[in-house]
């Protein structure tokens, strides 16, 4: 079982993840229509790029936007969740040891205590995000089972990984479940809204171009819309 989930199944998951995301990017860019979107993507490019980068930067740092400043607790939780989600698996010692053995490459690694704390932080912040969806009426009405499913998919690798790392009884079961749940997440990313992993940058860039060129970005340049 371990051989299968770390061998063929892992390859399949990574291939679907990678090519799926590339396809999502290609489809997103091809789906852009300057007439429909009223954004001149290929004219005034320098203003467009500047606006895009500006928008991405403001959205990628905590408290960069007005709504983030209005909801500080939510902002902190969201950033803790995302930072833990991205940093932990990539810089985890055990993952890099496997990477080093298989392909001879490895990144700089986190001390195990730090990755343990980050994992707990991801689980706790995920719990907070779920409770928020239940507690606040304005998000409850737009929440359905799909949203909870995605929370489960993205948090499951951390819960199972935590249990496997601490070697609770049934270690082998938890480790295999950890690998399987991570593969489910990788496959789910291109097909679900978890694709915001890359599409965030594209839609933020697109909106940023809109603002950089038209909505005030080129004020005073005799641009008539």
């Amino acid at each position: 079982m371990y051989q299968f989930v770390t061998g063929p199944l892992a390859w399949l998951a990574f291939i679907i993840f990678f090519f799926g995301l590339v396809l999502r990017i290609v489809l997103y860019v091809r789906g852009l229509d300057w007439k429909l979107d009223r954004v001149t993507y290929s004219v005034n490019v320098s203003y467009g790029i500047k606006g895009a980068i500006r928008s991405i930067i403001f959205w990628i740092f905590p408290f960069g936007t007005r709504s983030m400043r209005k909801n500080p607790v939510f902002t902190v939780m969201v950033f803790v969740f995302h930072i833990g989600l991205l940093i932990t698996p990539v810089f985890l010692l055990a993952h890099n040891v496997i990477l080093e053995e298989k392909w001879g490459i490895s990144f700089w690694t986190l001390p195990e205590t730090v990755s343990d704390i980050l994992t707990i932080a991801v689980i706790v912040s995920a719990l907070f995000l779920i409770l928020r969806r239940i507690a606040l009426p304005e998000v409850r009405i737009i929440t359905n089972a799909y949203d909870y499913l995605l929370m489960v998919i993205s948090t499951a690798p951390f819960i199972t990984g935590f249990l496997a790392y601490h070697q609770v009884s049934g270690y082998e079961f938890w480790l295999i479940l950890h690998i399987l749940s991570a593969e489910v997440m990788l496959v789910a990313i291109p097909f679900t809204k978890l694709s915001h992993m890359v599409l965030f940058f594209l839609s933020r860039g697109q909106l940023g171009m809109d603002y950089g060129i038209k909505r005030g970005g080129m004020k005073g340049y005799n641009l008539s819309w």
């Binding site: 051989q3 055990a94 080093e100 053995e101 790392y165 270690y171 480790l175």
Partner: peptide, 27 residues
């Protein structure tokens, strides 16, 4: 890597060959 290859690498080979083998999972 030398340690890991000598233990886990060998165990993995034995599994590949369909023979009785030792542990390969970290824990």
């Amino acid at each position: 890597t030398a340690f890991h290859n000598r233990c886990k690498g060998c165990h993995e080979n034995y599994i590949k060959w369909g023979r009785a083998s030792g542990p390969v999972m970290c824990g």
